[in-house]
Nucleic acid binder design. Structure first.
Lengths: 149, 149
DNA sequence: TTAGGTGCAAATTCTTTGCACCCTG
DNA sequence: CAGGGTGCAAAGAATTTGCACCTAA
C-alpha cells in the first residue's frame, strides 16, 4: 500500500526532525529501531525489536535497543503498551469495572459505568478472535500528583 | 460500612470453600493474603501485600505471597491488572486506537472505533484527577490459538 | 573537535524455584 | 501421618548502568 509507505516516510522524517530539535543525535541504530516499530504490527518488546534490527545492523546490542526505545518514548515518537515499568498488581474485585491510573504515581482506582459496560465493539474485532472481556483504561494525573507541581 | 464488611465475609467464605473444593489447603497465610486484597483499594503488588500482611504474620515470606497470589488467581478468586507477566511492549502508532489482546499468546491488534472514541466517562472519574487518555482493552482468544485446541 | 552514543559486561530489580522442615486435613 | 505448604537461600529473567571507545555534528 503506497499510502502506508508514504506515511512511514513522513514518520521517519518527523523522527529525524524531533531528534535534531531536541539535540539528540541521529544514528543508524536509532533510525533502524524506529523504522522497525513503524513496520511491525506486533507491538514488539525490546527483544523482538533487537532480533529484527540485528538483521540490518548485526552488531547492535540489546541495551542500545532499550535505551533507544525509552528515548523515542520520551520524545513522544512512540508509546508503551499497558502498565509499563510497573510490577504485577492484583485485584480481588471480580465485578465488571474500569480503571483510572495515574501516570505519575501509579495510583489506581476502579469505577463503574453502565454506559461503558453496554458499548458494542466494531465488527472488525470479532475477526481477531473470541472476546472474553472488555474494559476501559483511563490514564491521567491524580489529584495529589496534580497538586504537587 | 456494614454492607462492605458483610461482602468481605462472603468472599472469605467463598475463598475457603473454593480452596477445599480444589484440594488446596486453607492456611493462615493464604487467608491473610486474600483478606488483605479484599481490604485494599490500591491494587497492590506482591511487595505491598507482603508489607501489609507481615503486620499480622511477621514471619511470612515474600515468595509465599507470590505463590499465593498466583494460586488465588488460578482459582479465579482474584485477578491481575494490566498485562501481567508480559514484557514491556512498544508501539509507533500514535493515532487514537484500542487493543485486542490474546490472553493465550499475547498477540495484539489495534482497532479503531468512532463510537468508542466518543464515549463519555462518568462524573465519578473526574474526581480522581485530570484525564489524559482513554482507551478500550479487549481480552480474548485469537483465531490461531482458538484453532489449536 | 567533542559531547553524546554505542557495545560490552556487570549490576539491579522483580519474580521463581529447590529443598528441608512444618502443619492442615 | 501424609502430602501439600512455608521460609530460606539461591537461581532466573528482564532491564539498567558504568565505562572506554567511537561517531555525528
Amino acid at each position: 500500500m503506497a499510502r502506508e509507505r508514504e506515511r512511514a516516510e513522513e514518520r521517519l522524517e518527523e523522527c529525524e526532525r524531533v531528534c535534531r530539535e531536541s539535540g539528540v543525535k541521529v544514528t543508524p541504530q536509532r533510525m533502524e529501531i524506529f523504522r522497525e516499530l513503524l513496520r511491525s504490527e506486533e507491538h514488539p518488546d525490546a527483544e523482538a525489536v533487537h532480533r529484527a534490527v540485528r538483521e540490518r545492523l548485526p552488531t547492535i546490542s540489546l541495551d542500545t535497543v532499550y535505551r533507544t526505545l525509552w528515548l523515542l518514548s520520551d520524545l513522544g515518537l512512540i508509546r508503551t503498551m499497558g502498565h509499563a515499568r510497573e510490577r504485577t498488581r492484583f485485584d480481588a474485585n471480580l465485578d465488571r469495572h474500569h480503571h483510572f491510573v495515574c501516570v505519575r504515581c501509579g495510583l489506581t482506582r476502579d469505577f463503574h459505568s453502565d454506559a461503558l459496560d453496554g458499548l458494542s465493539l466494531p465488527r472488525e474485532v470479532r475477526a481477531f478472535g473470541r472476546v472474553e472481556e472488555t474494559h476501559v483504561e483511563v490514564r491521567g494525573v491524580c489529584g495529589s500528583c496534580a497538586a504537587e507541581k
